[in-house]
Design a protein around this nucleic acid. Structure first.
Lengths: 253, 253
DNA sequence: AAATGACCAGATAAACCCATACGGTCAAAT
DNA sequence: ATTTGACCGTATGGGTTTATCTGGTCATTT
C-alpha cells in the first residue's frame, strides 16, 4: 500500500522546520501538481493524489495553502514568474522593442501549456476554473505599469498617435489571442511552427501599432530602457504575488 | 389557447400549391426560427414553438425540411447569403480592395448575431451545435475560389511575397477571430464601437499582409476586378447551397 | 394535393438515492 | 513544533425510475 517515498521527507515526525526546506517542499508539491493537472485536468486532480505522489501527507499540503484553489493559484503564479523571467533574460539578447517583447511573450506562452490554457480559458485543462474569475485575470494583471509603459512608447514615437489607447490595447490583445486560438484549429498543413507563430504575432502587432517612419536613435534608446524597466516591474509584481502564494499564512494584518 | 394567426395561411385545407407562396412560407418560418434561437438559444427552441408562432402546423415544417437540423442549417445559410450580398452591394460604393472587403465582412458579421455566434462557436446561442461539425465550416467554406483569389492578389503585388500562403491565411483568420472574440471581453470603456472595430480589423490585416510600396494603377484595377469576381463567386456558391436548403426534397439522385 | 394535428417512440429532464470521493480538520504521534 | 492520516460532512457522479417533452410520422380532413 503505502507508496515508496521519493527522496526527501522520508522520516516521519519532526524533521527540520528549516525555512528553505519548507520552500523546497512547496515547490516539489507544485511540480507534482503541475504534472497532474496537465495529465488529467484540474477537475480530476485531487489533493490526495498530489500528496501521495509528492510523498507527503494531505495535511501537509494544507500547511502550505488554505484551499485547493490557492494551491493551483500558486502553481499558475509560479509558472507566470518563470515565464516572465525567461522573457527578461531573452530580451537582453536582442533589441528591447515592443515587437521583440511581444515575440518573446508569445514564444514563451506557446511553450508553456499551463499558461496557454490559462490565457485561452481551455476548459479541457482548467475544468471548472474556466467558469470563474477569468475577467480581471488578463485585464488587471498587466495594468501594473502597463499604462505607463504604453504612454512612454507613445511619447517616443514607438506607437501610432492616430489610435486611442483603448484601440492599442484592443489590437494587441486581439492579435495575441487570435493567433493563439486559431492556430490549433488550423488544418495541420496550415499551422506554422511555434517560433514562426511568435514572429507572425510580433510582426502583425508591430505593423498595426507602430508608425511608419524610422525611429531616432535617442527615442530607440528611451524605448529600450522603458521596455526593460517595464519587464523588470512585471517580474517584480509577479514575484510579489507568488511570494504571498508560497508562504502558507496570509500576509500580516 | 390557439394563438391568433398572423397574416397568411388563415384558411385551412388546400390553399394554392403556388411555388412562390411556398417559398414565402419557408422564409416566414425561418424568420420565426431566427427570432427564437436568438431569444432562447438552439437547445431550447423546439419545432413546435416555431410552428405555433409561424401559424402553421408542425407537420408543415417537415414538408420543407427533413429534420430540425436542416431547418437551422437553412437559417444560417440564408443569413450568410444576406450578409455576403450586402457586402457585395457595399463594396461597389468604394474601392474593391482586400482591406475594404475585410472591413465590410467584419462590419456585417458584427451586426448579425447569428453569424457572429456561428463564427465564434458561441454555445450560449448554438447549444449542442457547437460541439459538432465546426471544423470544415470555416475552412472548407471559403475555399471555393478563395485560393485562386489570394493567388491573384499575390500576382498583382497586393500581398506580401515574403509570407507563405498558409501564413497569409493564418494571419487573416487569427486577426478576424481575435478581434471578434476579444472585444466582447473588454471592459466597456475599452470596447470600440462596431464600425470602428471593423476598421481596426481591416487595417490590422491590411498592414500585416500588404507590401509597403504604392500599387501600380493597372494592378489596382486587376485586384478590384478579382475582388468583385470573388465576391460574386461567393454569393453564387452561398445561394446555391441555400437553394438546396429551401427546397424540401433533396437534390435529384 | 396539401395541410393538419393526434399520435408514437425515443430523447431528455427531473427527482431521487446511494456509494464513493473529496476537500478540509484535528487529535495523536513524534 | 511539525507532520501525519483517520475522520467528518458535504459534494459529486452513477444508477434508476418516472414524467415530460420533442422530433418526426401519417391517417384524416379539406
Amino acid at each position: 500500500m503505502a507508496g515508496v517515498v521519493e527522496s526527501r521527507t522520508r522520516r516521519v515526525g519532526r524533521p527540520p522546520q528549516d525555512a528553505s526546506q519548507r520552500l523546497a517542499r512547496a515547490h516539489h508539491i507544485l511540480d507534482i501538481a503541475g504534472d497532474l493537472i496537465l495529465r488529467w485536468g484540474y477537475d480530476k486532480t485531487t489533493v490526495e493524489d498530489i500528496a501521495r505522489r509528492a510523498g507527503v501527507a494531505k495535511g501537509t499540503i494544507y500547511l502550505h495553502w488554505k484551499t485547493r484553489e490557492e494551491l493551483f493559484a500558486a502553481l499558475l503564479r509560479r509558472e507566470r514568474v518563470e515565464m516572465i523571467i525567461e522573457v527578461r533574460r531573452r530580451i537582453r539578447e536582442g533589441p528591447a522593442t515592443l515587437r521583440e517583447l511581444l515575440r518573446l511573450l508569445a514564444s514563451e506562452t506557446l511553450s508553456r501549456p499551463l499558461i496557454r490554457a490559462s490565457v485561452l480559458g481551455d476548459s479541457e485543462v482548467l475544468g471548472r476554473l474556466t467558469r470563474q474569475k477569468r475577467d480581471r485575470t488578463a485585464g488587471a494583471e498587466l495594468d501594473a505599469g502597463f499604462r505607463g509603459y504604453f504612454d512612454t512608447l507613445l511619447e517616443h514615437g514607438a506607437l501610432r498617435s492616430d489610435l486611442s489607447s483603448a484601440e492599442h490595447v484592443t489590437t494587441l490583445a486581439s492579435v495575441l489571442y487570435g493567433f493563439l486560438s486559431v492556430s490549433p484549429m488550423m488544418p495541420a498543413g496550415y499551422r506554422p511552427a511555434d517560433e514562426r507563430l511568435a514572429e507572425l504575432i510580433a510582426d502583425t502587432v508591430g505593423r498595426a501599432l507602430e508608425p511608419g517612419g524610422p525611429t531616432p536613435a535617442a527615442d530607440a534608446r528611451a524605448v529600450a530602457r522603458a521596455t526593460l524597466e517595464y519587464v523588470d516591474a512585471v517580474v517584480e509584481a509577479a514575484r510579489r504575488k507568488l511570494r504571498v502564494s508560497l508562504g502558507s499564512e496570509e500576509s500580516t494584518p
